[in-house]
């Protein structure tokens, strides 16, 4: 497959058995149609990310990073190719099952944090649990409080999102992404809008929590410093991984 990144050697934790790939993408092609113009944004992408692994995805603007993350996050359907998450092929799921699958298995952290400004930090973290309808209300609150405590925002948990600073908002976004204990967290430029000190803090947080919860983390970034702190680096150019 052209442009595919070489498969990494199976990562071992503590010299134990090989860790299985939790996210597998094969031959991902994405073409956008605008009138008579077709734009091929992804041209056959293969990748695997293993449980607990931190992978950086770098590339210039327009190389297809965000589109790839959207497809891996089941927000966008590929024109061709397949995506398996926790061994389940997701590209042929219908809209309803896809929404449920996304809720249970995936977490997102975006560059602009995208919190709901009229809700408190605690409520923002609780939203995925509310949407799943699978949690006991008090259990969900307890879990959300723990996560906010973990990201150092216990004192701010009852603040409306609009009352928080940029770094605090991104910490809340990290806590929200981890609320459902997802198998994969996809982060699109999570430190893009933060100063270097806050970026470091957020990255440390993502790394620590990924290790604690064995969550696979795929981070799209322009920042080489961020990329260096990941387990593996994938370079993207012209819709291909190299």
């Amino acid at each position: 497959m052209s442009g595919a990144a070489p498969d990494p050697a199976p990562r071992r934790h503590d010299d134990g058995p090989a860790v299985p790939a939790v996210l597998v993408a094969r031959g991902i092609v994405k073409t956008f149609h605008d009138g008579e113009v077709d734009t091929e944004v992804l041209r056959g992408v293969d990748l695997e990310v293993r449980s607990g692994e931190l992978v950086a995805l770098m590339g210039p603007s327009g190389s297809g990073k965000s589109t790839l993350l959207s497809i891996l996050g089941t927000l966008l359907r590929p024109t061709a190719g397949s995506v398996e998450i926790t061994g389940r092929e997701v590209t042929d799921l219908d809209e309803r099952d896809l929404t449920r699958f996304r809720n249970r298995h995936l977490g997102f952290v975006f560059q602009l944090h995208h919190l709901l400004p009229d809700f408190t930090a605690l409520e923002n973290v609780l939203f995925p649990a509310w949407a799943s309808r699978a949690w006991d209300a008090e259990d969900a609150r307890e879990r959300a409080r723990e996560l906010l405590d973990r990201v150092g925002l216990s004192p701010r948990r009852d603040y409306k999102a609009r009352q928080l600073s940029g770094g605090q908002k991104q910490r809340v976004a990290v806590a929200r992404a981890l609320m459902m204990d997802p198998d994969v967290v996809l982060a699109d430029e999570p430190t893009g809008n933060l100063d270097s000190e806050t970026s470091e803090e957020v990255l440390d947080l993502l790394r620590e929590m990924s290790e604690e919860q064995h969550t696979a983390l795929l981070i799209s970034t322009h920042d080489e410093g961020v990329a260096r702190r990941c387990d593996r680096l994938l370079q993207m150019a012209d819709g291909r991984l190299s």
Partner: peptide
């Protein structure tokens, strides 16, 4: 719209 988009991203259905 942006809030609705983010709600949809973490599993809030169209119906909801």
């Amino acid at each position: 719209q942006a809030e609705i988009g983010i709600l949809r991203s973490f599993g809030v259905s169209r119906r909801s």
